[in-house]
Design a protein around this nucleic acid. Structure first.
Lengths: 157, 157
DNA sequence: CTTATGTCAGTGAAACTGATATTG
DNA sequence: CCAATATCAGTTACACTGACATAA
């Protein structure tokens, strides 16, 4: 570990802190709608891409299928998500938002947007663009998601 | 919602995703040491500032005292943390790392540094500095942590 | 009396691992 | 047989709220 101008460790901390505050504020904003942050994230993802499978949802949230399934089933029981009766090619089950959910997600998105807007308020346009770019780069730099258990080339350990 | 050049919502997503991947990778890196990410964060904070109280630890992690106490007690039971017998001015109890913990945290830090370094690898020096600055700005823009229930509006710290 | 601390008790959402069945 | 899906079962770390006692 030589000399770094900008310590990478510091970035790790800041990502964690920023996400912690963001998560707390989002949770507060979503509570009146009876939604948790993971639930909202799941719904929002479904709005952006209807008909997605739970496995794909899990990949995008960087969690296991089993974890995502808990959230997804909870949402289905609340009538916010429908799951296709007819499995697809690979036994896939496709999820979609219900009309009630679409309305709810709209309101949730407004509230969340208020939080994120406030968070990025002090940044100028260029700074915002740079932040988006840098965060995407960091996300991709850490490579593949986490599989189910097997099937994952052992990197180094 | 309006059309902005750089959507603030996108930043929220990226913060979440980046943190999710980072958290996953850190968890994998720390598992061989039998440490969870929150545990490591707690230990690292204690190394940086020995003698800190659990309430202060909680504030920095943006969680409640009760939540932090669970982590802290777990670490104490494992002999990684000592807690002062003599309460301070305000009934405070000060925590410190044990020698065993110091050694463990060293190894943990190396592993974590490997992850964060990999994460920021594609960025150049200027980009890293800009990211640090922007993240700190975002974190601070969302204001104070969450107290215990009452007592907010404490701007100085 | 007010405030900050530590603590006990309970709850809950959501992550994990492991195993199994099914389909292409 | 292999790969990817869905699912069931169990565990766990860790967040929350609420309530209480204590000390400055």
């Amino acid at each position: 570990m030589g000399s770094r101008g900008s310590d990478a460790t510091e970035i790790g901390y800041l990502v964690k802190q920023a996400q912690a505050v963001l998560n707390a504020r989002m949770g507060e904003a979503l509570r009146p709608l009876d939604l948790t942050v993971p639930q909202y994230a799941c719904l929002e993802q479904l709005r952006r891409q209807p008909g997605i499978t739970s496995s794909e949802l899990a990949r995008r949230a960087f969690v296991t299928r089993q974890s995502m399934n808990v959230v997804l089933h909870g949402l289905a029981e609340r009538g916010l998500v429908t799951r296709s009766e007819q499995p697809g090619p690979r036994k896939q089950i496709f999820a979609e938002l219900t009309d009630a959910a679409r309305d709810l997600v709209d309101r949730a998105s407004e509230r969340v947007a208020g939080v994120t807007t406030r968070m990025t308020q002090p940044l100028d346009e260029a700074g915002r663009a740079a932040l988006i770019s840098a965060l995407a780069t960091c996300r991709d730099a850490l490579g593949t998601p986490l599989g189910d258990g097997r099937a994952e080339e052992k990197t180094d350990d």
